[in-house]
Computed example of a mutant assay.
Amino acid sequence: MEHRLPYSPSVRRRRLSAELRRLRESCGMTAAQAAGRAGWPQSKVTKIELGERKNVTVQDLAVLCEVYGVHDPKVREALEKLARDAKQRGWWSKYKDVFTDLLPDFETEARIIRTYECQVVPGLLQLPEYIEAVFRGGQVHEPDVIERAVAARLRRQEILNRFDPPELWAVLDEAALRRRIGGPEVMRKQLQHLIHMAARHNITIQVVPFGAGEHAALVGSFVILDFPAALDPSLAYAETYTASLMMETTAELTRYNAVFGHLQGSALSAAESVKLLETVMSQLE
């Protein structure tokens, strides 16, 4: 049986942009020079290379290939396929009222997902009852709004159950285990679910205990996404009340990777973390 993994249109758009930028730079051209030869405004070339132009047409690619001297039909065909893939819509487009960012899009093609959560269980590991309580957050919402939010997050979790799933490395602050989201019974089920998920070959769960004191991630939660293809650089993601930030510069990623490394050092081992989960669960009874 053939297993076809879903792909991320946003990842393909980034890859197309990076490849076109590489082709331009290999010719020793500036964006202004390339635009001049193509008969375009410079802003068009810049937007394509920044991934801000979602619809890069076959005609656009043909013009750029002529400008950059790309005559290999296989290279042109590969660029056209990236452009076609980048225009597709993923399942998450049906939940635009729930998702305010492209995290589910990028998660689809990530090879490794590293996440730190200081207040709640990571979204990829949440049970439906827990998700509902998180979205309510002490506020009153219409039932259909909550239902869509739960459905969207459960759909997002399917990447962990597919053929050849990504590796998930989750570091949680002990506060995320102690906070009784949804009440004792919901938390008991959620903690048992974490213990169950921690037994999977592709999932590692570590807990930073209160006893660790200060640590490198006191500022807040974040996610780091690593991709299998060399043309797809890693991303760091952080969420605020009003915006979601996607960071991809070398300096930003170096910082986030260092922080995650320090967190691993502050956290209990995977086996010790499961024991703490069991302890917290027993204290709920």
Rank of each mutant, 00 (worst) to 15 (best):
G183I: 00
Y116T: 09
V223H: 03
N257K: 05
P184E: 00
D144Y: 15
L235G: 07
F227V: 15
K44C: 05
I146Y: 01
T279K: 12
S10V: 05
R179G: 12
A270Y: 07
A229V: 08
V223N: 06
L277P: 01
I146D: 02
L168H: 01
E147G: 11
P165V: 02
G220P: 05
D101H: 03
Y116L: 04
R37P: 00
L284N: 03
P143R: 07
F210H: 13
E142W: 10
K81P: 09
R155S: 08
K74R: 11
R53E: 03
G39M: 07
E80T: 14
L276W: 03
M29H: 06
K54G: 08
L127P: 00
L64G: 06
R180N: 14
D72A: 02
Y68K: 04
Y7F: 15
M187R: 13
L50S: 14
F99S: 10
V134N: 04
T240R: 14
F99N: 05
L268Q: 00
T240V: 14
P122T: 02
W91N: 14
I112Y: 09
Q157N: 02
R200L: 12
A199T: 05
G123H: 01
E80P: 11
L218P: 10
E2C: 08
Q157V: 01
K94L: 12
M281R: 10
E132D: 07
E174N: 06
T204S: 04
P166R: 08
R111E: 15
V259M: 06
E49D: 00
T30C: 10
M187G: 10
E214G: 13
I48R: 15
K54I: 10
S282I: 00
E107H: 00
G138S: 04
A230Q: 15
D232H: 03
N202V: 10
Y68N: 02
C118V: 13
G137I: 12
V56D: 03
G36E: 12
A83L: 08
Q190C: 01
I181K: 01
K96V: 04
Y130V: 13
A216Q: 14
P41Y: 05
D97W: 05
G182M: 08
N161W: 01
E49Q: 08
A251M: 01
E214L: 06
E252T: 06
R200K: 15
V259E: 03
L79C: 04
S266C: 08
I181N: 00
E142F: 13
V67A: 07
K275D: 08
L79E: 03
R84N: 07
Q206A: 09
P73C: 12
V207F: 12
Y7E: 08
A152H: 01
R153A: 04
V274D: 05
W92N: 01
W169D: 03
A86W: 02
L5D: 13
E285V: 12
I48F: 13
W40I: 13
M281S: 07
M1A: 11
L218H: 11
M281P: 02
E147C: 12
E52T: 01
V98L: 12
Q264E: 05
P184D: 05
Q283T: 00
I48D: 01
G123A: 05
G213M: 14
F227H: 09
P6N: 09
S93V: 09
G213V: 12
E248C: 04
G183N: 12
L268N: 01
H215C: 11
P143G: 02
R114C: 07
S273V: 06
E142V: 10
